[in-house]
């Protein structure tokens, strides 16, 4: 049996988690104070994911750049592929929160969406 200690990133509480793994299967999670901690621990030891945020250049708008994010979390190993795909991306104003900026970014099946209105 393997034990891994994690710090939950589900919210700013940062609960210290202890995960017990038996033959590649999570057998128990302790230390969490909510359901989110349990979910995070199971995912983090099997398939860790992250939300990636960045900003891209806007042309013809009131601001120089618009902030963006992956609409859902993506596998941790894909972070730099996504950053590479965002390099050089330019959009035309107006941009609204939720607009798709890049669809299926780096073949993750996840879209990049705007997180700010730039008019």
């Amino acid at each position: 049996m393997e034990t891994r200690e994690l710090i939950c990133i589900g919210c700013p509480m940062g609960c210290p988690l202890k995960v017990e793994i038996n033959n590649g299967e999570v057998s128990s999670v302790t230390g969490n104070t909510c359901k989110r901690g349990d979910d995070y621990a199971r995912k983090e030891v099997t398939n860790p994911t992250r939300i990636v945020t960045s900003s891209v250049i806007v042309e013809g708008g009131s601001l120089a750049a618009v902030s963006v994010k992956t609409k859902q979390d993506i596998p941790k190993g894909k972070i730099f592929d996504i950053m590479k795909a965002l390099k050089g991306v330019k959009v035309q104003a107006p941009v609204h929160i939720g607009d798709v900026i890049v669809s299926n970014v780096a073949d993750t099946g996840v879209d990049i969406i705007a997180t700010k209105n730039v008019l």
């Binding site: 919210c11 700013p12 939300i51 945020t53 994010k69």
Partner: peptide
């Protein structure tokens, strides 16, 4: 522009601009 805002207020994880 990073995420992690709003878990208490909106019960979802937002970026700062959102």
């Amino acid at each position: 522009i990073h995420n992690g805002f709003g878990l208490h207020t909106f019960k979802e994880e937002l970026t700062g601009p959102e």
